[in-house]
Nucleic acid binder design. Structure first.
Lengths: 98, 98
DNA sequence: TTTGAATACCTTGTATCGCAAGGTACTGTT
DNA sequence: AACAGTACCTTGCGATACAAGGTATTCAAA
């Protein structure tokens, strides 16, 4: 059922704080949402391509450099739309639950 | 984003009241969820095949007979699972929103 | 009586999403 | 120089939703 929620959750996560892939997986896991690497990379690439995310390289003390992603201004606007969509879905479900 | 929510919404809708396809489309439209015919038929067939829905034929005053679907006992149990999943998704999103 | 409109059923082809598995490249340590 | 660890990414598969098109039944009007 969580299909399609991933994009929303990731954009929520990156709206204030830059993260690289493992950060994202870890943070979502703490929120009880499991994501696979093979799911995340194409998703981040797509959001980058669409202008909703940007990244910068940062060096790591242990290993190769990392891509830190952050929401762009355009991404903030898209997130506002998703927030509205989320509210609507909640309304829909609550309506059907009665 | 509503991908994957459809199954849940339809099972909520059919838990107390039997409906045929057009009923379902109409009811979901009232709850601001748009569904296409070509989406609904395979979904209903799948839920029927999995034992979560049952149907009975009822004659119509204007046109051919209709398949009225209703949730089975097994469907009720599956719906309980989906309710739990829905609660968890809400928790996840609310956590990420902070 | 036959034709057509309305209704209801269903299928097929396409795009997208998420997962599983596998592959490449950089870093530091042994 | 070799290896383990980390981080990046791609490919193939299954499932879901949409768009479009197709079949069948009913009733009313020509």
């Amino acid at each position: 059922m969580r299909k399609g929620m991933l994009e929303y959750c990731i954009m929520l996560l990156l709206r204030h704080q830059a993260c690289y892939t493992n950060d994202i997986i870890q943070r979502l896991r703490e929120a009880e949402m499991i994501v696979m690497e093979g799911t995340l990379y194409p998703l981040l690439s797509r959001l980058k391509r669409d202008g909703l995310l940007a990244y910068e390289w940062r060096e790591s003390t242990q290993g190769p450099p990392r891509k830190y992603y952050l929401l762009t201004d355009e991404g903030q606007q898209a997130l506002a739309q998703l927030n509205a969509g989320w509210e609507e879905i909640q309304r829909t479900v609550n309506l059907l639950k009665q």
